[in-house]
Amino acid sequence: MTLTVKPKTWPGAIREVTLGAGSRQGLTIGGGKGLPLHTFEAAFPRRPLLALEITDVDPPRWVDTVRAPWDGALGRPDVAAKRAVEEYGADVVMLHLVGTHPDRGDRSPAEAVEATRQVLDAVGVPLIVKGPGGGSRQNDVLVRVAEECRGEGLVLHSAAQEDYKSLAAVTVAYGHVLVAESPIDLNIAKQLNILLSDANVDMDRVLIDPMTGGLGYGLEYSYSVMQRIRLAALGGDRMLNAPVICLVGEEAWKAKEVKVDGTPAAVWGDRARRGVQWEIATALPLLEAGADLLVLRHPEALAEVRRVVDGWFVAGS
């Protein structure tokens, strides 16, 4: 007896997008021709990449257990970047410009450029630069960074449907990659990509951030919307076949469950270890749902996800 489960074949594939250029060593993600991680039946020329998040200022909201591995590097982006790459083995670094938020330091676009430069000087891997979030400050900061660091193939995080034009323009002008963020909504993700494409942004320079819900905090919404985006992409939708980035660390470490001690200990255990596992249990399902680039916070979470990914792409290929 031989059972045959018909392998799934698809008309579409995920686009390949290269992160980093100029003084960066470029790395390419995407290219998958089947359901995520279904390496047994489809070609996956690129494996998912893992980034670590660092910040321009000491991030006041980071909980002690995730601060620990960054001791001495918090608020020192160059030191943190080196540690992320050289000690912890990150493929990519994400510099989160927390300090430029009007309520968290109100640092100027010039200071943001300075922090970005420090990271660029410290490491040679591709760099994601995340602004302070929505509104005009986000544009002021990222437009300046994009202009001053032109040609570095930065991943700019992020443009939204209401306000994408400035970042679209600098992505085109200065050779960067743009993250298109949509609020867990396939249709908005698609609309935004159409708008970006209309604004002459090459789709080979776009990543989708479908917005990550952390474990216990909406993970299921991200999980399902990503699966649907991937199905649409594999079905041939060229406005949804961009690689997907997920900000795992930021969401996982927000959870109440990583901050409290919790009783009984028989099911809460060690708080630090629980935090790491919370991050792992957010990351792996998202990989399975189609993430191509995961941004993590804790190096131990990165190490475990790395072990899984490496094993997978050796064993499965």
Binding site: K165, S166, A169
Partner: peptide, 11 residues
């Protein structure tokens, strides 16, 4: 670079 972008992004 400083002003042209404002025409393009609608500012």
């Amino acid at each position: 670079r400083e002003q042209g972008i404002k025409l393009v992004d609608g500012r």
